[in-house]
Each structure stands twice: as C-alpha cells, then as structure tokens.
Design a protein around this nucleic acid. Structure first.
Lengths: 350, 350
DNA sequence: CCCGGCAACTTTAGCGCTTAAGTCGCGTCG
DNA sequence: CGACGCGACTTAAGCGCTAAAGTTGCCGGG
C-alpha cells in the first residue's frame, strides 16, 4: 500500500546513481559534493537521480574515508545529575541539539557514575572513532578532564568554564556578575544580613559564586554575610535554612543555589512561622516553573540553558572545523524580581 | 609527560596487530571475534597484541561491513517536552543509557518541532544508516509514527504503549491500574466528589487515564466526578483549578496530571483560602522533588522513569537482535500518600 | 602409500565512499 | 600543424573490517 519501502529494499548507493546517469561512481561523488571535475549539466542529472532514488550518503562509509563522524559526545556524570540540575541539563542538551541537528550533527549521550568512568568513555570514543568532539560539563576543581581530552587529541569544549588550566576553550556564564546583581538587588531592597546556601565547593562554578558573594558583600558594604555549602539535597536545604535562621541576628535574605534547596528552604521558613519576604527574602539561582508558581513567587536568576547549549554547540563545531575559538562569556543571567524579595506589588504587571 | 598519545598518533588497526603477531588481518579478525579458524595459542597472542596496542574496532568500518551501528535513536518532539515532563524524559533517557552503554550502544538524540519532522528524522537516520533502531515516545491518537517506522523497516519500540495498531512492540505503564489506585485512595479517605485535571486528550496515555478515571468512578461508586483537559501549562492549572472549585458543590479532591499543573493548582487553592487537605485533597501524577518539599507534601503517583527507560532499552536491544518481543507492562506506579490527602499524621514515619 | 579431510591459516573480494592519478578528445597558441 | 593545456571523465587504490573461497601441511584410513 503506497510506496512500500520495506527493510529489504536495498538502499541506493553511488553505484546506482552512477549507473542511472551513465557515469562513474567517482564522477557522481564529485557532482554530489560540489567538487570540480563534472560539467554543470552532468551535475544536475546526478542531483536529479539522487533525489529520485532517495539517496543519502552512507554515514559509516563517509566516516571511514576520513570525514568525521558528524557526532559530538556528551557524558553526564551521575553526580552532576542531582535532581536540582536535571532540568538545566535537559535544556542544555536540547539547546545543543537545536544547532547540531541543523548542521546534521548527532548528539551521543552517555551516563556514567564518576569522572574516571567519564574519562574512560572519552578513551573509548576516541579509539572507536565514535565522536568528533565532546562537551565537558560541570567542571570541578583540579578537574582532570581538560588535560585528559587534550592528551587524547579529542576536540572539546567546556560548558560552564573557563578552564583554569586554559587548555580547552569554553563557553561560560558570568557567575560573578550574576551574584553581584543578586547582591545589589538585596542591598536595594534593604538587606544587611544575607546568607548564601550554595552547592558543593568542589564544583568550580559554585566556588566562583562563593568568591563573588564575598566580594560583593565587601563592595556593597553588606556587613553580615555568611555562606554554607550543601550537597544540593532537599534535606540539606531544610536543615541549613533552619540553622541559619536560628542565628541571632538572623539573616534577612537567603540565596539558594538551586530549586530543590529553595523549595525545601521555603518549607523550613514557613515552619518557623516567618513571613516571606517580610521576615526573610528568598532568591533562587535558577528560574524554573516552580518559582513562578509558588506563593509567594520566588525571585530568581534567570538564565537561558537552551541558548547556552546552542552557543556551546556552535563553538564546538568551530573547534571541529579547526578554527581557534576563544573563551566566550554568555549574557549575564538576569534577575527576575518576584514577590519573595519585593513583596506583592499589585501594579507589578507581568 | 606520561604516555603521550597526541591526535596524530595513528590509531592501531587490525593490520598492526596482524603484523605484530605475524599472521594475516583476517586471522586476527577471527581471533578477536571468537570465530573458529585460529588456534587457541594464536588467539591469545592476538588478544595480547590488541591489548598492548590499545586497539579497538573502528566503529565505522564495522558498520560498513554489515554489523549494526550500535546506536539507537530517540527523537523528542518539542511538544512532548513541555516543562512538566522534561524531568520524566531526562530520567527515561538516563535509564535507557544505563543499559545501552553496558552493551556498548550509544544513544542518538534529536529534538524536533513536530511529528512530521520526527518522521523525517527517521527517514534520514535510516537512509544514512545512523541507527539500528529507535524508541518512540508520547504516542498520540492516530499516531502515524508506528506505521512509518514499520514501513521504513526501522526497528522500533514504543515507550508508553501499547500501540493501538499493534505493529510495534511496546513497554507500557498501566495507567488504568494507577488511576484505580488513586481513586481507591480517595474513596478510602472519604471523597465523593473528585475532579481530574488532565493533559491534552490527543495524548494516548492521557486518553487512557481519562477512561480509567470514569471507569473507576463507576466501579467505586464515586458519584460526582468531572475531568478537564489542559495543555499542561501553569496557567491552565491555575484557571482550571479555580473554575473547578467554584462549582457547587465543589470537588473535595483534585487529581493533577503533572507537577506544573499541581503546583499552580495548589497556588489557586491557597488563593481561595481553602485548606489542603481539609477542604480539598490533592494528588499528582508524578512524584518529583517538589512534591515532598511543598507544604503540605503532595500525595503522588510514583513511577520509576529510569527503570522504565532501562526496560525500554533492554527490549529494544532484543528487537535489534531479531527476537520477537511481546508487549510488556511495567510495574504499576505506586501511590505515595502524603499530607495533601491524608493530612499531617505525626506518627507517619517515613 | 596415496588420498580425503580437517585445522589453521592466507588470499581475495567487497561494504560505500573519497581521492589521487590517469585517459581522452578538443580548442589553442607559437 | 603539432605539442600543450584543460575540462570532463574514468580507473585504481584505499579507509578498517568481515567473510567467502582458497591454500597449506599433517593425520588417519583404506
């Protein structure tokens, strides 16, 4: 029924096209790749034949002759995949995909348990020639990955750099500026005591945020600041919030490094019968659907993971094309002020 | 520094191994693939040489000789990727990966905007020989995809079936049983008027849930039931909740099809100054971190997306191996009763 | 003692495509 | 008018691996 093309219908090859047009395979190849060596007339006939036969280059065959694999790899270490950042990851990936697929590149995904395994995957990919390049995410302090991929000769790009060692180009998010905008906002809304509940310091971006937190504290003259590292879990969010708020004097504003932490924190705040934002203001470092839907809505740092992913992919493709690419800094995340810091403002059209 | 293996160091091939051992390429190939035709002694020497040279089969070369591509594809249509289900998807994927990578399979990912584009991707993958098989997600009513992959001769498996047409095997979740358990729970906690805020009926699983909802309503004798389809958005969750609760008599329990809907709904409920669960009980069809962290914690249907993904991958691999696989039903999601239906029970250790 | 048969290889061919190195006819320049 | 250059192809080789079809050398049976 209809044009039946079962699995047995051998896919067309260059041979078929060549035969149909009455030329050699090589000529057909030239024509299809826009190379010189065929007349325009012939080229057209080849193109036509290719279309009629529904021909497409055999991916493996191409890869075998030296063209790349048209595939980029992404390894997700399970630790980087805690519940708080899954959404971010997912969007990063889909963002990457948007540009990759436009360029006919595929995304190869792998989930592993540790950084060591991750490096093992890079080895395997390289040995088997499975990918042309990889994206490194969630850099840690003293991360062995940049060195590893360089040594392997595996083109790479860091999502969320910059690379301290400077050996792998990166696309990064300006955590310092973002933190500054958060602190400025808190300063402007009258806070003098703010606590930052961060993720694990082993993560490079967390480390940077903490540094900026203290710098901003100094620069803006916010006298009483404290920070506390968590493991990103709800439990940690709850207990850290509780102990912070037991302090005397207690902080008037809390910054949470992710959504899970924040929602747990809000729960703890409520349990202590404190009001948001009158008693404590809350800011979250990631704008997720939950932020807008909670009551009060949470002021959040809004970034664009998909756009980030797109930039990452774009630059990785440049690396693959042999271009030297410089480190790139994303647009600074914007602070979206909501009720959790500014209170209900009826006229707050949005 | 250390064992340097720059990108220029040509990767070893069968030739290298053969030379080193002093046999032919073919013999080496036999040895490495456990085929008869070489003595055990030789086989060992080949294996040894392969290890020493850090050899691995060239993926493209293998694919070219008829072996598969050791890659399975997954296309995500952007519509299926609304904020409420991103988490589910992400976990599904990582679950698939767990089994795929163990078998040396890779996951190829693609994001598209429509079902048509999705089918186009399958065509392209097939033509270019990029994948051995694909996973179909988020089946709709009259979905053209099962037919399409069959016609293409592209092995496939449906995640979240069963396929109404019965042409593609599936791994499915028993929505009917799940819905029944929800309804039974509500009946037991004394509800006689329940409203179901579902996703779009065009989705097969939503359709099934709605059907089961009504069946359960009849079976359990829950007199006053109503259901309302939404687009999964927070806005819809808010407005649908509001209008439901304006009904007279108003429902005493609300079932939400996903997290975003639920959180928005809880917001609306609060705005109407109703108490949870005293005035309205709430159940969510997906257990996410937010459920446990909200106050009151939300009773939720807990499934295991990663386990689901693993099952899907496993069965797809069987299909690829040429085995006939029957439709498979996952363990029924379990209802996790929390404060939003049963109230605060201090003795509720967990 | 010769031949079939078998184990243990080797040779050859080929997967689908690219590319370097021809080949051939034709217009052109000295 | 002949060598030369060039456009338009064709041939051949090869990417790394697999698999079918040889090729040995050795052993046992008739």
């Amino acid at each position: 029924m209809g044009l039946h093309m079962g699995s047995d219908a051998r896919r067309p090859t260059l041979r078929d096209i060549a035969d149909r047009v009455g030329i050699s395979e090589a000529a057909a190849s030239f024509a299809l790749n826009g190379k010189p060596g065929v007349s325009e007339a012939t080229r057209q006939r080849v193109l036509q034949a290719a279309k009629e036969l529904d021909w497409a280059p055999h991916h493996a065959a191409r890869a075998l002759t030296g063209a790349g694999t048209a595939t980029v790899g992404l390894v997700i270490a399970r630790s980087a995949q805690d519940v708080g950042s899954e959404l971010f990851f997912h969007r990063l990936m889909t963002g990457m995909q948007a540009v990759l697929s436009r360029r006919k590149y595929a995304l190869l995904l792998q989930v592993v348990d540790s950084v060591d395994e991750e490096i093992a995957v890079y080895h395997a990919w390289k040995r088997e020639n499975r990918v042309d390049g990889v994206v490194l995410v969630d850099l840690r302090r003293n991360d062995p990955r940049p060195e590893a991929v360089v040594e392997l000769g595996l083109p790479a790009l860091i999502a969320g750099g910059p690379d301290p060692a400077g050996v792998v180009p990166s696309v990064s998010i300006d955590d310092a500026a973002a933190m500054t905008s958060v602190m400025r906002h808190l300063k402007e809304t009258g806070h003098e005591r703010v606590a930052y509940l961060s993720g694990p310091i082993s993560l490079l971006h967390v480390h940077r945020r903490i540094e900026s937190f203290w710098r901003a504290s100094a620069d803006l003259g916010i006298a009483d600041c404290r920070s506390h590292a968590t493991d990103f879990s709800a439990g940690a969010g709850d207990s850290a919030t509780t102990s912070m708020l037991r302090g005397d004097p207690r902080p008037t504003a809390l910054i949470y490094d992710n959504e899970v932490l924040a929602v747990a924190g809000v729960g703890a705040i409520r349990r202590m019968a404190l009001r948001i934002p009158e008693d404590v203001a809350v800011v979250v470092w990631e704008d997720t659907p939950v932020c807008t839907v909670l009551q009060p809505a949470l002021t959040a740092l809004h970034r664009d993971p998909a756009g980030f992913g797109a930039d990452v992919a774009e630059r990785l493709l440049k690396v693959l094309a042999g271009e030297k690419v410089a480190d790139f800094e994303e647009r600074v995340p914007t602070l979206v002020a909501r009720a959790s810091t500014v209170g209900e403002r009826p006229g707050d059209a949005d």
